[in-house]
């Protein structure tokens, strides 16, 4: 597969390490959330057959975490963003 890195252009997916669903960005705050919320966050997956937002780490590259929108049936990639930008857009701070 080839991932079109937003900064570096097309890169072989072999350079990346895959983590999983991009919902892993949405970590609850441990001071306010309990086991139930953390359980849903860490373990439950929508696991769609189709468009999937997922986290890839450019380990053999610029060490950016990316949010890749990829179809899990065709493997077509329609969007690649820096995870940091996505995280900020989702309101994550310090």
């Amino acid at each position: 597969m080839i991932i079109h890195h937003p900064i570096l252009g097309p890169r072989d997916a072999q350079e990346f390490v895959y983590l999983g669903d991009a919902s892993l960005i949405d970590r609850p705050d441990g001071m306010t959330a309990g086991v139930e919320e953390f359980h849903d966050y860490l373990y439950q997956r929508t696991n769609p057959a189709g468009e999937h937002q997922e986290l890839w780490y450019h380990e053999q590259g610029d060490r950016s975490w990316l949010v890749v929108t990829r179809n899990t049936v065709t493997h077509e990639i329609t969007k690649v963003e820096l995870a940091r930008d996505v995280a900020r857009a989702r309101g994550r701070t310090k």
Binding site: L19, L55, E59, A83, R84, A87, R88, R92
Partner: peptide, 19 residues
């Protein structure tokens, strides 16, 4: 060594991007 570094980058970029 490698997985911890990857994890720290995840925390830095994805969980607490404003740090």
């Amino acid at each position: 060594a490698v997985t911890v570094f990857r994890h720290l980058e995840f925390c830095r970029q994805c969980l607490w991007p404003e740090m």
